[in-house]
Computed example of a mutant assay.
Amino acid sequence: MSITLSDARVVTLDGEHDGWLTIEDGRITHIGHGAAPGNGHSLGGRLVVPGFVDMHSHGGAGGSFPDGDPGTAAEVAAFHLGKGTTTMVASLVTAPLDRIARAASALADLCEQGLLAGIHFEGPYIARSRCGAHDPALLRDPSREELRQLLKAGRGQVRMLTIAPELPGALDVIRDAVADGVIAALGHSDAVYDKTIEGIEAGASVATHLYNAMPQLGHRNPGPIAALLEDDRVTVELINDGVHVHPAMLGLAIRAAGSGRTALITDAMAAAGMGDGRYPLGPMTVDVKDGVARIADGGSIAGSTLTMDVAFKRTVEQVGVAPAEVARMASLTPARVLGLDHEIGSITVGKYADLVVLGDTLEVEGVMRRGVWIRRPSGA
């Protein structure tokens, strides 16, 4: 089956141009400029960007990945898919080890089916002083044996581990994780500048939600932020929901790391797409008021109610980044981190036709995954 999308503003690795693209058997086969040859499905001048890749999300639509329920997880993925996220990783939170292992085993089934792109362990190897929405009573020093047990439960589907490099044994666990093909991410940490560098040297290559749950950037004590931003081996996650990070600091990080080392994430929890109220996040209880999620006992920010389409729109409109660069941060950069950029992440001949169609105000009007419309834009 072949389909041509015409009259579009197509965002490719070369930038944005007026043109068309053809899709056959779920993959992009041709990309052209100007008018399409023959008849096509007109997009009426809408912007077409690659499907979003969210490498850090805990839930949405009332459901939570840490619950480890496959049916609920499928509903979460479907909700985010409707918002343009064609690839997503399921992030867990700190919990008793047996609960983390059970959730990983259950979610591994969905990874094997292609519904999820992997599993992310955020905790339990993080700093109590920077625990955020994680239960401090359940935090632990890193253990190589425990890591092996958790990876075994995940059956090869664990993509990422967030860890504080200053904890006893952390550097060895980072080395073991990387050796097993797991991305080591530094975060929820009180590490000083030099210790952060040690974590990077051990193999860590991602900063978990830069700025949040780590010491502030200081001119005498630069801390982890400076180390993570300056190292070309590190990709930094950013949450652009208007709550976690000020637009000026988002812009600072993007200019320092560039779109090739910046990944927009949601860090979404169950309340994404829902109203205010009380929701679970692993063993913790979260209150959402005016769209802001906070731990019921203590008030720490507890993830977000963000979706990737809103993160895209905010980064263009409030941070002032061009759509083609934002598309890289929302798609290609996280795809590269996950080792999937040969198949997804950009509008490129040969890659899967994972596409998002955006209107004049950058609202999602169409979503295609693997060449199939999940949400068909009007007129197409």
Rank of each mutant, 00 (worst) to 15 (best):
C131T: 07
I183T: 15
Q157I: 03
R130M: 15
L150T: 00
H134L: 12
D141Q: 02
V158S: 01
G123H: 10
P124I: 07
L107Y: 08
P124A: 09
S105I: 02
A106E: 14
I174F: 04
G154Y: 03
R140P: 02
A184R: 00
E145G: 03
V173T: 11
A103Y: 15
S189Y: 05
G187C: 04
I174A: 07
L116W: 12
P136G: 11
L171V: 05
G181Q: 04
G156K: 02
E145F: 06
C111Q: 04
E112K: 10
D135H: 03
S105K: 08
D141M: 00
G169R: 05
Q149Y: 03
A170N: 14
A133L: 08
D135S: 08
Q149I: 11
G118R: 07
Q157A: 11
H134Y: 08
A170W: 11
G187K: 01
L167H: 05
A170K: 03
V173G: 12
R144Q: 09
D109L: 14
D172V: 00
G118E: 11
D176L: 14
L147I: 00
D176E: 15
I183H: 11
R159I: 07
R130E: 10
L107S: 14
A185S: 15
A164C: 08
G123C: 11
M160P: 02
V158Q: 12
L171C: 03
S143V: 07
G187S: 03
L138K: 13
H134G: 13
I174G: 03
P124Y: 04
D176S: 06
G114D: 13
I126S: 07
L151H: 07
A127Q: 12
G169F: 04
A153E: 02
A127E: 15
S105N: 04
A104T: 05
E166K: 05
P142C: 01
L167R: 07
R102L: 15
R148V: 05
L151P: 04
I183K: 08
P165M: 02
G169Q: 04
A170P: 11
T162G: 03
P136W: 06
G132M: 08
E112N: 10
G123V: 07
L139Q: 01
G156S: 08
T162S: 10
G132N: 09
D176A: 14
R128L: 12
A153V: 09
R130I: 01
A108T: 05
A106K: 08
P165L: 07
D172K: 06
G154T: 09
L167G: 00
I163N: 07
P165Y: 11
G132P: 09
I163G: 13
L150E: 07
G156I: 00
G156Q: 02
R148E: 14
L116Q: 13
S189M: 10
A170D: 11
P168G: 06
R175V: 04
L171T: 02
L107T: 13
D141W: 00
E146Y: 08
C111L: 06
R140F: 09
A177M: 10
D109V: 14
D135M: 12
V178P: 04
R148D: 14
Y125T: 09
R144L: 01
M160Y: 10
G118N: 11
